[in-house]
Amino acid sequence: MLLAFDTATPLVAVALHDGEDVVVELTSERPMKHGEQLAPLIASALEQAGLVRQDLTAIAVGVGPGPFTGLRVGLVTARTLGFVLEVPVYGVCSLDVLAVEAASALGTDFVVATDARRKEVYLASYDATGARLDGPVVSKPADVASDLPVVGEGGSLYPDAFPHATGPQRPSAGWLARTVAEELAEIVDPEPLYLRRPDAELPRPPKKVS
């Protein structure tokens, strides 16, 4: 039984996949409260599926890019759960999850763009089969404007740069689970894709007080 979750967006998404298909899929209700909602959501998913923690055989986690605090909640949860349950942890780029879900319906090259805040997007480009061609990068929408179909929240947030918004808005845990179960995209280590350096200023000399 594969447990999958993504915390790279304002919401928390959790799913269980039994090897055949997704058996439970849950999404949190309150935005940004990843730390509060993820563990209870995993517990409810197990309960709804009539499973116990010992039934889990692998963990899939979205590695972003996405808001850092939420991202870390997902990654530290995945790594720690994997460690205590002694099961493997698989990471998938959260943009790839959107691409896997969107590819079959589109049948053409496309772009995935999600909200990076600060008036920027996280973006990657894909071919018609959903294989990543380029990215992910963090960028101003105008600098990566595209006439291709754009999947993800970035498309609807910045219509000037992305006139052809389409498809799913946020990565779903169900598709994350399918991506790992069926190896539909690159599987990576559970390392966060920050794409930005920490905001930190080197200190100036002490201010004069007199």
């Binding site: 563990a39 870390r72 909640v73 530290v76 949860t77 759960l81 205590v84």
Partner: peptide, 20 residues
């Protein structure tokens, strides 16, 4: 620090959940 606390709390929950 909010973001720092969050990492520890999430890890602790994963332990609690994984160990019952």
């Amino acid at each position: 620090l909010a973001g720092a606390l969050l990492v520890g709390v999430a890890a602790a929950k994963a332990l609690a959940l994984g160990l019952g």
